[in-house]
């Protein structure tokens, strides 16, 4: 069994490490520091932590102002607030002028759980993908969450970092370095390709095992870099396997699946099935109950792969 750890804890732990080596790094939060876990940074670096209160819009523009003065602000809040409540500030204060601001968005996806649909960001990738200049990184586990946070700090320009609320499997296979614009090929294969982003990597790996038992050669790709996306990895998969299944803890509209489909349709059209939230809002429940209910489990990925292979 996998060890379980929170991706938001990876964010918080990385910030503490970064705080020691980057003196102009500051952390902002909007009254959810205990949930984003930036309170850990606050405890060690109280002079570089700014709680903006329940003011996500103000926080993002304040962060842009601090970046203009040479600081590296990590603005932390839930994904719904960062992209929907403060969407204008994210667009006009940060993305458009390429402010050197990092958005640490936690509680993304259906596994946010009990808080229900209002707090489950299932459209944040779609929104942020459509903003020019933004780099979007979606880690698969705690270790990768630490990696993307450090990568963002050392990358000049706006970055959107997507974390979840729950504890997720720690997956050794994805622990190679994250490179912006590069996929991680976890397993080679030539019948079908499975592409994950974020915490769906564990479901995709499980699906790969199930398909292997059926004698199906499965290529498994993990994409922590959603924008820019590794186009070559997609084109190769489209050319060299019979189809692609994408898996994301996000709406099937505007996320990983459509990004992959957009590239494949231009270079090598193929059958693509998208696993994700099917244009519905979520609801309250335990993370795993909701993953089951909304079809985000390995069995759905296997069934999608089999459907493609039967065509």
């Amino acid at each position: 069994m996998y060890n379980l750890k929170k991706t938001r804890q990876g964010y918080a732990d990385a910030l503490i490490e970064l705080g020691a080596v980057i003196p102009n790094l500051v952390v902002l939060d909007a009254d959810v520091a205990k949930a984003t876990q930036t309170c850990d940074f606050q405890a060690i670096y109280p002079d570089r932590f700014f709680n903006c209160g329940v003011q996500e819009q103000n926080m993002l523009s304040v962060a842009a102002g601090m970046a203009l003065e040479g600081f590296i602000p990590f603005a932390s809040t839930f994904g719904v607030f960062a992209t929907c409540r403060a969407g204008d500030q994210l667009r006009n204060s940060i993305a458009y002028p390429q402010a050197n601001v990092k958005i640490g968005a936690t509680h993304c996806g259906i596994t946010t759980g009990g808080d229900g649909a209002s707090h489950q960001a299932n459209e944040d990738i779609a929104i942020t993908r459509s903003f020019p200049n933004l780099t979007i990184l979606v880690p698969g586990d705690y270790e990768e969450a630490k990696m993307v946070t450090k990568l963002a700090a050392n990358h000049h320009g706006p970055v959107y970092l997507r974390f979840g609320r729950d504890a997720y499997p720690v997956i050794d296979e994805i622990h190679g370095p994250v490179v912006i614009g590069k996929a991680k090929i976890l397993q080679d294969g030539n019948d079908i390709t499975l592409i994950s982003t974020g915490i769906m990597v564990s479901e995709v790996l499980q699906a790969g095992k199930n398909l292997h038992q059926k004698g199906i050669s499965t290529r498994i790709i993990h994409m922590p870099s959603i924008k820019p996306l590794d186009e070559k990895a997609v084109i190769s998969a489209a050319r060299e396997t019979k189809g692609i299944v994408t898996a994301e803890e996000h709406s099937i509209i505007g996320g990983l699946g459509e990004a992959v489909a957009g590239i494949a349709s231009l270079h090598h059209p193929t059958f693509i099935e998208r696993i994700g939230m099917r244009d519905v809002f979520g609801e309250s429940g335990q993370a795993q109950e909701l993953m089951d209910k909304f079809g985000l489990k390995a069995t759905e990925i296997v069934n999608a792969a089999l459907r493609i292979l039967k065509r």
Binding site: F50, Q57, N58, L60, S61, V62, A63, A64, G65, M66, A67, L68, E69, G70, F71, P73, Q89, S93
Partner: peptide
């Protein structure tokens, strides 16, 4: 807000 962020940074 941006000006406030800049002023805080200063």
């Amino acid at each position: 807000s941006t000006a406030a962020g800049m002023a805080l940074a200063a």
